[in-house]
Structures are given as structure tokens and as C-alpha cells.
Design a protein around this nucleic acid. Sequence first.
RNA 1: GGGCGGUUAGCUCAGUUGGUUAGAGCGCCUGCCUUACAAGCAGGAUGUCGGGGGUUCAAGUCCCUCACCGCCCACCA
Length: 930
Amino acid sequence: MPHELPKAYDPTAIEDHWAAYWVRENLFAQPTPTAGDASGEPFTILLPPPNVTGRLHMGHMLNQTEMDILTRWQRMSGRRALWLPGTDHAGIATQMMVERQLASEGKNRQEMGREAFIDRVWEWKRHYGGAILDQMKRLGASVDWQREYFTLDERLSVAVREAFVRLYEQDMIYRGAYIVNWCPRCQTAISDLEVVYDEHKGHLWEIKYPVLGNDGQETGEFLTIATTRPETMLGDVAVAIHPEDERYLHLHGKKLKLPLLEGDKAREIPIILDDWVSRDFGTGAVKVTPAHDPNDFALGQRHHLPSINVMDDAAHINAEGGKYAGLDRFAARRRIVEDLEALGLLVAVKDHTHNVGHCDRCKTVVEPRLSLQWFVKIQPLADRAIAAVKDGHIKFTPEMYEKTYLNWMENIHDWCISRQLWWGHRIPAWHCSTCHKVTVARVDPSACAHCGAAMLTQETDVLDTWFSSGLLPVSVFGWPNLTSENISDFDTFYPTSLLVTGFDILFFWVARMIMLGCWFAGDVPMSDGSARDLKDSVPFREVYIHALVRDANREKMSKTKGNVIDPIEIVKQYGTDAVRFTLAAMASPGTDIAFNVDRTEGYRAFANKIWNAARFLFMNVTRAREAGFRIDSKNISKGITQDLSSPLESQWIVHQFNLTIALVNAALEDYRFDEAASYIYKFVWHNFCDWYLEGIKLRLTFDADVSVDANVSIHMLLAVFEGSLRLLSPFMPFLTEELWWALHEDNPPLKSIGLARFPEFSSQLVNIRAETTFSEIQDLVTSIRELRKSLLIGDNETTPVEIHVITSPESTNIEEAFRNNTDLLRRYVRISDVNFKSAPLHGPQVRHTPNFDVAVVYERTPDVHSERERLTKDIAKYEKGMAAAERQLGNEGFVAKAPAHIVEGLKKQAAETQLLLEKARAALAALPPE
RNA sequence: GGGCGGUUAGCUCAGUUGGUUAGAGCGCCUGCCUUACAAGCAGGAUGUCGGGGGUUCAAGUCCCUCACCGCCCACCA
């Protein structure tokens, strides 16, 4: 144990070593349970799988820190903890990344072909895909690396395919032509969630369409429509007006000529009547373009109108656009506006601010566009997902997210799950070129299921990435192939205990997991063969949603703003533990975290403080051994007892430690990382270091015969410090691991402190008497220090003090504690004689507390001016307190209705305040003039 | 348009089911190399709890209202 530690803690010197050790030794692996395995109750948690394209950012680090704290805490508390990591193939993002790489080589995927391109993506993935998990390893995340998965792994792909086929068989998947959000750059459909809307200052163009008479000739009258996307008029099939709009009553039944399109594309379009049209927007007349607008599509359905798609996959105008064919949509817009103006059909261009949808991934303006896609019928899934939450089988923290979730789920639309990408799970459907029907199958079919023809081509679309990640809670535990070997994984670890995530993927992922989990797990029988009810079908029992990490100025971190804090950089600078502690301490629910390195600096200091406490301890162990004391490092973990014959500070620190355990446990139960962190901080720094260590110096004298207190004290010191390391370990795994090994002279009872037991609260360790008497000693010490300061007594000067303990029910204890601990007092403050007086003390060198008066005997008196200031301020404070107390106590309602302990407490406090007030007044009056 | 959150010390934030005179860290001021730690020790200053109204014996805490900041959902062409 005589460990030579450097004077200052240097995290970089130890962290890499421990991070590698934890991974190498597989310390946190949680193997598939075997029969009769009596390990603790499972605590299962899935890592929200980062994208393979991802680089670790502060949000990840917050997320991982919280999960790691909880997992380590649960593991140390005896639960069978499994934290399961993996990565997501991230369809669009990854494909984009590789396409960009290809572009820099002057290539593109189309000329490469699908297979070669996919090979290339795999190669990319092998090369870069592990980056984020490597970073995670470096941060010490206590995950089971042996279970690491990738969403395109064979076994997870089987699950995806099974899920698709099953839903299809259950008539829950259909294919059809609907308006979807289309990204012209990614050239794929995207779901509603993948569209982000930005406010955009655009225009509202008012265009007049010629009205046709019954003879088909222009009547000279016009109907003016308003649009924000003039180019879509090429696909217009009608103009809609409100049936009761008095301005247009005479146009009912009439047709219009669609301007611009000539020759074989020229067309007449009807004026249709629909309540949906709002009379006060624009001109009250709406062009109807079913192929390019969701509302128009609905309108088209109601009125049996055709849909004319005028754009290709890249949002260039197609052949339907006549002379505009080939133009990009925005170029077409400009040209069309020019042409309309030339024709005199452009009535007005008005400024109009509206929301424009952009592709979440590449920020391209999305184009609502009619296309053939695969959809999941969502209502049956949503019904279960709603019930699961409403019935309390899934609990959200903070609670408000339950409302958000339900609100979304209750207004959900069918889910477009097909993507026109190459990277992803290819949809297991085959098109028959003979009968044109679709065959969906678990194994690649050789013949059409409908007509038997062999001319099958597989669907080229892949599935939305969230379809596979939505299945993770079931698929990672072996579903659908639940053999006897992996059924126990499923039995043991499903439902998972908790999901920790940010609200940004509440709908993308959390909601989908709930829907898919409830749907598919519901079919898996319980281990005893009985049917699984909804309660046990949910993918997780609790969801903890954390805040966003912002920069120190509360700005959202973004690459464009250049204010992104790289966690790895900060970690290098301050140490992982300090950064973890910062995140934990600032993670109060419902509020975003303004990440400020000033705080991290403070927690680095905290780590250093602990380091130095350890140095102090080792130093004393060495001294003790040199003096012949026997200290066996094997006995350290024997446990802590409350020894009523031990010195006061030892009894007190055991009591405080015990109390802190209870507080930390309670805080973590409620995901109050901030509270847990602050209880630990306060205990370690302000109780353990400031008071206990300073006090114990008195006992740690290892000269020959003064042995009893020294022996008791050094062992108590070791035990409490070791316990504190375990308490702190989930928050600061590196530092605590290092010191724990040092404490055990590199021969600890377990391979890691992370496998040791978390301290447990024990009512046996409660010691109220030690708490109250020590707290009086603290008051006494503080009063004397304050007095000495005001008397300008040098820090090295020793002075006598006088104490008068005020008569009260506790005063015997207090006086006894003071008398018995004068030597301890001398450790805390430079005093010589301590004289107890039976009469109250007065004068400028006295301080008053509710329980005692204390005077420092010194020839000098305090500075009259500052003394007057202090007393005046005190008096004001006391008077304010008295006024408040009298007001309340004089109020009959209060005395009659308030609980007795409140009234009694106030009375007692008022009496004390009155006393202090009188003393302060007297002291002020006694002050000599300045 | 609908919904939600926030506003407490110079800064960043706590503040349990309403209960005695509102807290922490950082920063600031003063004094200290006290043999674990200057990344330290000791002491100190700092608040009309966003404004207004109400309920209550009692409001930072509950209700109403206004203001400002932020987020989510919807997408009326």
C-alpha cells in the first residue's frame, strides 16, 4: 500500500490503461444465462445505436455517461446488468457518405452498379464504422462488447425479414401510389419525420386561368389562383373553389384552359367545388395538382381526378411538362413565371412567408410527389403502443413526454417504409413479370406464388433504417429464432429495463420500438409457456429522456456555427471522470445543459482532491507501519461499523457516509444524476476532506503508546475511503479504479471496483448524537474562525477562548462534547486554553449562536466600523425574522391550522432569534464611537 | 394554428406533496505555502424568486393573466 502517488492527479496517465483493461478482460460481459443461474434480477439497457457514420459528440457522451452511471450502479447493487452496444447502418447517411467519396474519385454509384456499390459501402464501414464505438471504449462505457451488433448483421437481417413477411401476411403492409416526401438529391422517398420545415420568405404568385364557355372557347373571363409553386401547374388537373363562394357562383360547372401547355399536352381542366377550400386565403381558388401535393391528392381522390406527375426522380420536369421538360424545378419555376408574365396571365407576385420542407439528411428542399411505395398500416400497431403507455406498462421520465408521445401516436399516419436506396435491408418482395403480382417470402422464391411463373425480379427498394432499429429490442435477443439456447436471453433480458435517449428520436425510434416490440413480442410465449400479455411485450419498462447539450452560451452546437465541443478533446484536457461528472451534475431533468468547461475544471479539481486524500491516507499507512502498526490491505473491505467508543469525528463520518448512500440511491432511482453528484461531491469534499481528514490528523500519531485511537482511526479512515470510492465509482470509474487498486496494493479482491458492491445504507450506522454534537463543534469552530478574522489575528497565532453553553435540553450533551473534544477543536482552529463560563458572555470579542456564546480572548478589539456594519446587518436580519415570526404566530389561523411541528419550530426559532437580536443590539450599543 | 417547457445571486443551475428567515458550483473581495491537495485552506459580499392579480393561516412552490425566451407538432394552396 505505501504507494508513491504524484502530487497532482494526471488522468491521462491512467485512463487509457484502464479503458483497455476493462475491454480486454471482458469485465462487463453478461453471457446467456444457463439453467439454474441464480444471478440477480436483470437490468437490461440498449445503447441507442449510433450511426456508423457518426463521430462522438457531447450528446452521445451525456447519453453514455447516464447509461454508464445507471448500469454500473445497478451492477454494483447486485443486479445482472447488461448494457448492449451496436451500430446502425443508417441507410441514407451512409450511402451519402460513400457517394461523396465516389464523387471525389470522379465516380458514381449508377455506373458502378448495385452490387459493387454495396461492396464499397461495406468496405467503408469496415474502415470507418467502428470509430464511434472505439471512442466509447475510451470513455470507459461498461458495455458487453461480446454482444456488439450491427443492424445489417445476418441475424438481425433475419429478424427484419421475418417482421416484414409477418406484417405482410397479417395484411399490415401494402404497396401503393401515394404522395410521399421525395428528396430529389437522395432520390428516395422519406418519411414525414425526416422532413424538417424551415420558415422561408417566398412568394405567392397569382395566376389567371382563362375561363372556357360551353363552346370550349375562351370567354375572356379569368379565374385567378394563388400558388407558391407555379411550376406544379404543369400537373394541374382542376381548380377548386368553395361551393358557397359568392364571387364564383357563376363559374360552377365551367372549365378552364390550363395556360402554357400546348399541342398534345394542352388541356382543359374543370372547376370543382370543395368545402376544404378556404375562401379567405389567396384568391379563394386553388389549383389542384394531385401528383405533387398531399391536399390536392386527397382532393383528386374525392373528385376522381387523374394525377399527372410532372417531375422525375431528380425533380426535373418530365415529358408531361411539354416545352419545360428537362428543366430543374426551380429553373422551370423562373421560366414559367416569365412566360406567364409575357402572356399577361401573372396578376400579382406577393411576398409570402411559409414553411418549406427540407430533407433531414441533406437539407435539399423536398418535393411532395406521387410515387409507388410500401407502407405499414399503422393504426393496429399504434393502438397497442398507446395502450402500453396508458396502462402504465411504460413509464416516461420526465413525465411530460408521455403526453408528447400519446399526442403523436394518436395522430399517426401510415408509415412509408420503402426507400429508393441501395444500402439497407432489401424488401423481400418479388414482382412477377407474368401475372404482375407480388410474392413476399422468408426465403428467396424461385417461382411466383400466384401463377407459378419463374420470371421474378426482386423489389429494388430497401427498408427505412428505423424499421430495423425499431426491432432491436426483440432482434438482439434472438427473435425470431428463439432456440433453447437463445430463448433464455429473450426470457431473461426482454423486456429491457430502461431506455435512455434524447427527445430528438422519440418518434423516430422510441415510438417505433414500442409499436414493433409490442406487436412481435406479444407472440412469444413466456418462459413457462403461458401467453405474453402487453405488460411483458413492451420493449422497455421505462424511458428516461435527457436534455440537449448546448454550448456555454446556450447555443445549439452546430458545425456551421463552429461551436461544437469535441468530447474527446475535453476529455484529453480534463480527464474523462471530470467530464462525466460535469455532465452528471448538470443533467437536471427538463433543462438543456449549457456545457461550460469552468464546471469541468471544478470537477477536475474534485478528482485531484480525492487523489490527494488518497496520498494523505497512503502517507499515514506508511507512517503507521513504520511505527509497527499492522495494517492488512485484505481487511479493508470488511465493512464499516458504528463504533461508539471511537473518536467523535469517526462516528460522525460514518453517519454522514451512511446518509449519503441513502441520498445517492434515492437520487439515482429517480434519474436525478445532478442530485446524486452533488451529494457525493458535498460528502467527499466538505465532510470527508474538510472536516474528517482535518480532524483525524489529531489521532494519527503513531508514536509508541498512543495507539488505541490511532489504530481505530486509521482503519476507519481506510474503510470509509474505500467505501467512498465504491460510492463514487459509477461517476468516476477511472480515478476510483486506480485508487482502489492502490488501496489493495495491486491485489484487489475483484478484478475491478466496478464488480464490487455499491455501499448499502444501514440503520445500524445512523448516529444522531454524533451528528448533532459534531454540528455544534462545527458551529463553534466557525464562530471562532470568524471572530479571529475580525480581530485580525494572524493565522499562526494561538489564542485562548471562553465558552458559555446556554441552558437547553441539549446543553449537557453540547458542553460535554466541547469539553471532551478540546483537542479536536485545536486541530480546527488555533486556540490554546478553553475556559467554560457559567454566565453569558458579552463584549466585542463574542459571537452568539442559539446554543452558546464564544469569546476569543485577545488584547485587540475588532475594527469598530466593520463591527458596526456586521451587527447592523445582523440586527436587520433578526428583525426581519422576528417580524415574520410574530406575524405568523399572532395569526390565529396559523396557530390553529398549521401542523404542530411547524408551529413549535417557528416558536423555538423565534425565541432563538429574539435572544440573538437582543445580544446583537447590546453589542451594537456597547461599541465605542468611531 | 395546436401543444409543451423556461424566466430564482454577476454566470450556470438546484429548490421534494405549499410550511420556520431561499441554496450550490463558478466568478468576485480579504487573509493564508497550516508537513494530502495553491487544481488548495479559511473568512466574506451578493436575490422585490419575470410583471400583475387571486386562493390560503402560509406561495419561489397552486390558479388566472401579461411579457419575454425556447422547443415540439401541424403545413392553407
